[in-house]
Structure formats: C-alpha cells, structure tokens
C-alpha cells in the first residue's frame, strides 16, 4: 500500500465518519463543525481525483462561505431563544431503515461494470486553463445565469430580512 492510497482511504473514512457524526449528533453546533470536517475531506478527495480547482473552490466557498453562514444562523437562532442547542430526533427507525435500503440499492447498482476504473492514466495538464476558457466559451450562458441566480438570491434574502427589521418583532 503506497502513501497515496493510504491518504485516499484516510480521507474517505474521515468523510464517512463525520457524515455519520452529523446524523448521530444532537448538538447543532457540533454537527456544523463535523460538516466542516466532511467538506474538507471531500476537498482532499477532489485533489486526488485531479480536480484541484474544484477542491480550492470547495474550501473557499463551501467551507469558508456556506458554513460560516450556517454557523451565523445557528448563533442567531440560539441567541434569540436562549435554549441550548440540543436537537430532538423523530422517526429514527424509519429514516435509518430507508437510508440503509437506499444505500444497498445504490451500492448494488454501482457494482456494475459500467462504473469500472479507467485503466489509462488520466492526463489533465492545464485543467485550470481549460476551466477558465470553458467559463468564457462553452459555459458562458450558465455562467451568466449563475450571475442572475446570485442576484435573485440576494434580492430574495434582502426582501425577507429587510421586512423583519421594519417590523421590529
């Protein structure tokens, strides 16, 4: 077993373990931190899958942005209520059972030969350059739409929160 393989399986295990931790944890804040661990391990897996740019975006935007927003949300809601961050569970049995069944089904499908390993070495020289040109050429339309999507999300979030301020609940 060489080092690369070891690192790969290490991060796979970390990701799986932290995801399980989110499911088991009853504390929202701890769950958010475990999501952070999970996101970072996934970023490492991206690097090992020749997707450096996606990995960097994952760390900057996902781990750095989304998670901070979520932690803000946790703090704001817990501050308002003054209650501890404990979370109750409902229909555990049904959820876990359906989760296991779904996983068994998916795993069964994935075993198919169609998803076998590519034997040839993957050559991704200049992937960053390709991504850059893609954004400006083949993916220019989605790029623009993503801009409008961000704008719409901004307007929406602002519309919701500005109303709260004016109402002074």
């Amino acid at each position: 077993m060489n080092t690369l393989t070891f690192i790969f399986y290490f991060f796979m295990l970390t990701a799986a373990a932290s995801a399980t931790g989110i499911l088991l944890s009853r504390n929202v804040f701890k769950a958010a931190l475990m999501l952070l661990v999970c996101l970072l391990s996934i970023a490492a897996l991206y690097v090992l899958s020749f997707a450096e740019f996606v990995a960097i975006t994952q760390i900057l935007v996902y781990a750095g942005g989304v998670l901070v927003v979520i932690i803000f949300g946790i703090m704001l809601t817990s501050k308002l209520s003054g209650k501890p961050l404990q979370v109750g569970h409902t229909n555990i049995f049904a959820a876990v059972l359906s989760g296991i069944l779904l996983f068994a089904l998916l795993a069964n499908f994935i075993t198919d030969d169609v998803f076998a390993v590519p034997q040839h070495a993957v050559e991704t020289q200049g992937a960053l350059q390709t991504i850059g040109t893609n954004f400006m050429t083949a993916y220019s339309l989605p790029f623009e739409i993503a801009g409008i999507l961000l704008l719409a999300a901004l307007i929406g979030a602002a519309a919701i929160t500005s109303f709260m301020k004016s109402k002074k609940v």
Binding site: A16, T20, L23, A32, T77, V87, H89, I100, L106
Partner: peptide, 17 residues
C-alpha cells in the same frame, strides 16, 4: 453521503440541521 444526508433531513427536528 447521499443516504446519510437524506436520513439527517428525515430524522432531525431542527431546520438548520
């Protein structure tokens, strides 16, 4: 991860969770 995520959505009684 997908199945765990789905289970989290079903189990947790907190919107942020």
């Amino acid at each position: 991860l997908f199945c765990t995520g789905l289970a989290v959505v079903m189990v947790k009684r907190n919107t942020i969770m």
